[in-house]
C-alpha cells in the first residue's frame, strides 16, 4: 500500500487541486459544537473543521437524498429521471462513517441495484480522516473503530503533517495530480503514525458488553426495557434521519394541477405511526414501544442474521439528535443486563 505525507500548510492547495475535478465537501462548523458536511466552494479551506467528531447528518445525505424525484409522469406515461451528478469528493469521513457507507452500499446494491444511489456513489471519492473519540462515540463497542477499506485516501493528523494511506486507483490518481506537494514516508513519519494509533487505541475502549446481544434480544423479545423506551421516546424519527445506516424511504406522488407530476422518494422512519399503515387503516406496530423495539431489533438482530454484523456503527449521532435524550449505549447495556 502506498503512503505519503503532506504538510498541513499544503492541505488547502491540495483541496484546491481536487476542486478542479470534484465538488469537494468538507466538515464545517454549524455552531453550538455541531458540524455539517458542506461544499468547500461555499466556505473556503479555513472553514475545514478537522477537529469535528460527528456531523449532524451522515454522508448518506449525498447518496440517498432526503427527498428526490425518481421519475416524472404525464398523460404520455412515465419518464425516468437521469441522475447527472458531477463527480464529488467527501473529505474527512471518520472510520464509523466508512463502515456506515459500506452497510448502505450493500443495501442499495444487493439483490437489486438502486440506480440513483449507484450513480451518485460511483461519482464519489472518499477521503477518510483519523479521529479521537468524544463522550458520545462508541465505535469501540461496535468494533467500527477499525479501518477496513472503503476509502480512496485516508488522512491521519500528525500535527504539522498528515500521514496518508492510498486506498484505491482513484486515490493514487489524486495524489499524482499534485505529486510535488506530497513526500515519501520516512521512518520518523512511520513512528509518529504508530504513536498516534497507539494513543488512539487507548482512548477507544468498549463501553458496554455486546457479546451475544442479538441472541439475548431474540430469546427475550418481551424485555421490559422496550416498554420503558416506548414511554420515553417521542417516535419523532430524529434518530433514524441522522443514522448513517437507516435506509427506509417512502415513495409517493407529487401531482401538479395539470395532472402531470413527480414520483418522489423521501426519508422515512420505522418509528413513524404511518410507516406500517396498510389498507383498512391497520398497523402492525401501533404502539410506540413496538416501533422502538423494532428499530433496535433490525439493527441488532435482523441485520446480524442477514449480513453477519450489527447495523449500528457507534457514531453517536442518534444520541446527540434525540430530544428525549435516549442513549443507545445505556439501552444496549440495559437490554444486555435485564435480558440476560
Amino acid at each position: 500500500m502506498e503512503t505519503f505525507t503532506l504538510y498541513r500548510e499544503h492541505l488547502g492547495q491540495f483541496l484546491d487541486v481536487c476542486q478542479e475535478q470534484f465538488r469537494v465537501q468538507i466538515p464545517v462548523s454549524a455552531g453550538d459544537g455541531r458540524y455539517r458536511f458542506s461544499p468547500l466552494a461555499g466556505h473556503g479551506v479555513e472553514a475545514l473543521a478537522l477537529e469535528y467528531h460527528r456531523t449532524l447528518l451522515p454522508p448518506k445525505k449525498y447518496f440517498l437524498l432526503p427527498e428526490e424525484t425518481i421519475c416524472t409522469f404525464d398523460q404520455k406515461g412515465y419518464h425516468p429521471v437521469e441522475v447527472a451528478e458531477e463527480p464529488f469528493l467527501l473529505f474527512g469521513l471518520h472510520p464509523c462513517d466508512l463502515h456506515g457507507l459500506r452497510i448502505i452500499d450493500q443495501f442499495f446494491s444487493t439483490p437489486y441495484a438502486d440506480s440513483a444511489y449507484q450513480s451518485r456513489r460511483k461519482n464519489a471519492l472518499i477521503v477518510g480522516l483519523g479521529c479521537l473519540p468524544d463522550d458520545k462515540c462508541f465505535c469501540a463497542t461496535m468494533n467500527t473503530q477499525q479501518i477496513m477499506g472503503g476509502y480512496d485516501l485516508f488522512f491521519w493528523d500528525l500535527g504539522e503533517r498528515f500521514y496518508i494511506q492510498v486506498g484505491s486507483e482513484a486515490g493514487h490518481g489524486l495524489i499524482h495530480k499534485a505529486r510535488e506537494m506530497f513526500h515519501d514516508v520516512v521512518d520518523e513519519d512511520r513512528q509518529d503514525y504508530l504513536e498516534t494509533l497507539y494513543q488512539r487505541r487507548h482512548l477507544l475502549t468498549p463501553k458496554v458488553d455486546v457479546a451475544d446481544l442479538s441472541q439475548i434480544m431474540e430469546a427475550n423479545p418481551d424485555c421490559a426495557v422496550w416498554d420503558e423506551l416506548g414511554a420515553a421516546c417521542f417516535a419523532c424519527g430524529a434518530c433514524t434521519m441522522v443514522c448513517p445506516t437507516c435506509t427506509c424511504y417512502d415513495i409517493f406522488d407529487r401531482v401538479e394541477l395539470d395532472g402531470s407530476g413527480r414520483r418522489c422518494r423521501q426519508w422515512d422512519s420505522c418509528l413513524f405511526r404511518d410507516f406500517d399503515r396498510i389498507a383498512g387503516e391497520v398497523h402492525f406496530r401501533s404502539d410506540r414501544s413496538d416501533r422502538v423495539k423494532n428499530r433496535f431489533f433490525h439493527k441488532e438482530v435482523v441485520h446480524v442474521k442477514q449480513h453477519q454484523r450489527s447495523a449500528c456503527v457507534g457514531c453517536g449521532r442518534c444520541q446527540e439528535a434525540c430530544p428525549a435524550g435516549i442513549d443507545v449505549v445505556s439501552v444496549l447495556s440495559r437490554v444486555h443486563a435485564s435480558c440476560a
Binding site: 449532524l56 447528518l57 427527498e67 424519527g237 434521519m241 404511518d274 439528535a321
Partner: peptide
C-alpha cells in the same frame, strides 16, 4: 403523520 422534528433533522437544523 411525522413530526416536525423529522423534517428539522432532514434539513440539518440544530435542535
Amino acid at each position: 403523520d411525522f413530526p416536525v422534528c423529522a423534517e428539522c433533522r432532514m434539513a440539518e437544523q440544530i435542535c
